[in-house]
Amino acid sequence: EEWPVDETKRGRDLGAYLRQRVAQAFREGENTQIAEPEACDQMYESLARLHSNYYKHKYPRPRDTSFSGLSVEEYKLILSTDTLEEFQEMNKSMWKKLQEKFAPTRPEEKHKAWTRVLSRPRT
């Protein structure tokens, strides 16, 4: 229940999925008959460890680095469901592509510039 829901990733968030799974597994509330109590306990302990950041603390890194070099807030923006839907819309419309070329003020441009670096060279 304590697992937070990431609003930016509507429709594909692990937190929302977990809530749904728990609600489904315990349909009868406290009176639900658990088929495999031992497995259930193990799953609960797994979730509890993930929730308490057990592994991040156990394996500290000398430097917190990533590959694309953005900040966590920027990742949330780029990977949010709304932004991804915008990308799909942009792909459909050639006219919008032309517009974007002359007004590249959106933060998604950062993502595009980053993508260009990794584009596959033509064989």
Binding site: L50, F67, Y75
Partner: peptide, 18 residues
């Protein structure tokens, strides 16, 4: 995947698990 994993490694275990 690259962007998602990057967010995960910089986040806590919640973010990486997601």
């Amino acid at each position: 995947a690259i962007l998602g994993y990057d967010e995960g490694i910089l986040s806590d275990d919640h973010g990486l698990a997601a």
